[in-house]
Design a protein around this nucleic acid. Sequence first.
DNA 1: GAAACGTGGGAGAGCGCTCTCCCGAACCTT
DNA 2: AAGGTTCGGGAGAGCGCTCTCCCACGTTTC
Lengths: 330, 330
Amino acid sequence: MSRATVSRVVNGVRNVAPGIQQAVRDAVARTGYTPNQAARSLVTRRTGTVALVLSATGRAFAARVFSDPFFGRVVDGVLPVLRERTIQPVMLVAESEEARAQLVEYLRQGGADGALVVPLDADDPLPAMLVAADVPTVLFGRPHDSTRCGFVDLDNTAGARLAAEHLWATGRRRPATIAAPVSAPTAPERLDGFREAFAARGVTSVPVVRGRFSVDSGRRAMARLLKEHPGIDGVFAANDLMAQGACQYLREEGIAVPGSVAVVGFDDSVAARRAQPQLTTVRQPVERMAAAMARLLVEELTGGRPESDRQPHEPASKLFEPVLVVREST
Amino acid sequence: MSRATVSRVVNGVRNVAPGIQQAVRDAVARTGYTPNQAARSLVTRRTGTVALVLSATGRAFAARVFSDPFFGRVVDGVLPVLRERTIQPVMLVAESEEARAQLVEYLRQGGADGALVVPLDADDPLPAMLVAADVPTVLFGRPHDSTRCGFVDLDNTAGARLAAEHLWATGRRRPATIAAPVSAPTAPERLDGFREAFAARGVTSVPVVRGRFSVDSGRRAMARLLKEHPGIDGVFAANDLMAQGACQYLREEGIAVPGSVAVVGFDDSVAARRAQPQLTTVRQPVERMAAAMARLLVEELTGGRPESDRQPHEPASKLFEPVLVVREST
DNA sequence: GAAACGTGGGAGAGCGCTCTCCCGAACCTT
DNA sequence: AAGGTTCGGGAGAGCGCTCTCCCACGTTTC
């Protein structure tokens, strides 16, 4: 029997007589034969693999990533989409500049067919590097520079506006906000959206303290806010973890939530439900966004580009709308 | 110029005249040439890649993994070791039975040179599957069955004993423990170690409630413990997150920590320092253990086995001793 | 000055697959 | 019954590297 026939059976291409098919399968099972991935991708120019890249500069890498439920949600969203298509998901991390270079090299050498990138900093150079290296790439969050690649994004401005309008509607007139770190991609939108919505209603001064997305930083931010602006009656935090921290601090200080101060979070992560009180928050459908991101990439990969008309790129993207979820903290 | 010369320059093997070397480098830079990884591994039978595998059965996969600082510490420990040797780390997850099968297939086809496995359940079949598939494997935690492969482990019994002895030494005579989920690999050792140490001192009845490694489950466990055994004066939790939850609950109920009830955690993760009060805890050097795990695998991979004397396996392993860290909660 | 040696570079054989031909046999069609 | 049309299977050419020969040239040695 020829290699060709075996190949046909294994890959399920063309017709092979059932008898022969069975014979091949038996032989495969008997000998424990495994096709060599390297040889296969050498000719197919495919690895059947997609990289999920987590990019964060600076230290305390793991602490940043593995304490926030956010990335877990991304993983949860991406996995089913890839599994369903029998694409092997591999997670890559770029925790330093060297790591980033190594990673780009790995991908351009064909380590994976494409990359799903979750940048944790707005000025992350990785997306641009990948696009320059001709790696099919889809981002979580709009690319900040002119990098032309696919992405999914949330209308963060609208989300922040939702929070502001809700606080306004429930009678809060002395708002403050615990903003994201300046480096965060979503920081400006969530901050400005909140401020502008209040400005439009005549409230021009909104105290801002930056947090670092953690529960702890939320506590500290709340403490500072309260010290510098004792009259505050409504707080919008740029994620649920910080909102949770704010609530903890307020209650410890004997300040009623939502009685005296209302708190709105962002994301609607598990933390929002787990917090005491349960958080009113702006829902970001992370899992759905991540799934969409994976689908976008898969389409680009299988997009049947007939070799010739490979446009420089035609970045597809998808936008999501936030929704306000009202619970106990407002 | 021949391909061979280029290959020699790129891989830095043998002597190549400096002039020629420069010429090659220039050409590479100019044309943006990138060697094809697939072709290379086809002949070298190496990918230059090591997989860090996270295996967890059951649902809420991401929630389990990305909310506990534990896995982040493993990553932090593994990365430097691999980076230093320019081995590309790829993280793989086995979140379902299918995923597990797919993953094993991927690795035996040569998707990576070896696997570092962190099983979250004691009865995880993955390690055995990998060993059966001839994938060089090193585990975090002693293999539960007769799987012959390398591993690193902590003396969990000794750790639990440390906690017990400390509680005893500080005058606690009515201990209780918030144990790990039955499925956790470390559950029996940490539980039995604690009980036996007290039994040796004449305290035979130690109430046990199972938690799920989360802050929340720690709170609930503490609540139940207190309700069913109001006299408790010392609690040992199987990880810091649960200890933190226990402290939170106790303080909310107006019970002084460590005044009325002392609390000891396990791991010495960031959560221990962040908790209020700061946790007395049994230190598990996760980063060092993870680094050792990576080194063990690298040695097995580069271990110069001269092809012929490939023993069935000679599993190397390394054991670590826990240390008690006394802070404010006792 | 000839033989021995070392050193840099080319030729070419694979690595293990996939995939395009191509050919023989069986099945229709008129 | 002769031609055309499937259909199943084999042969063999690569995919892009690495690595072992092997050869040509310069350098040393007696």
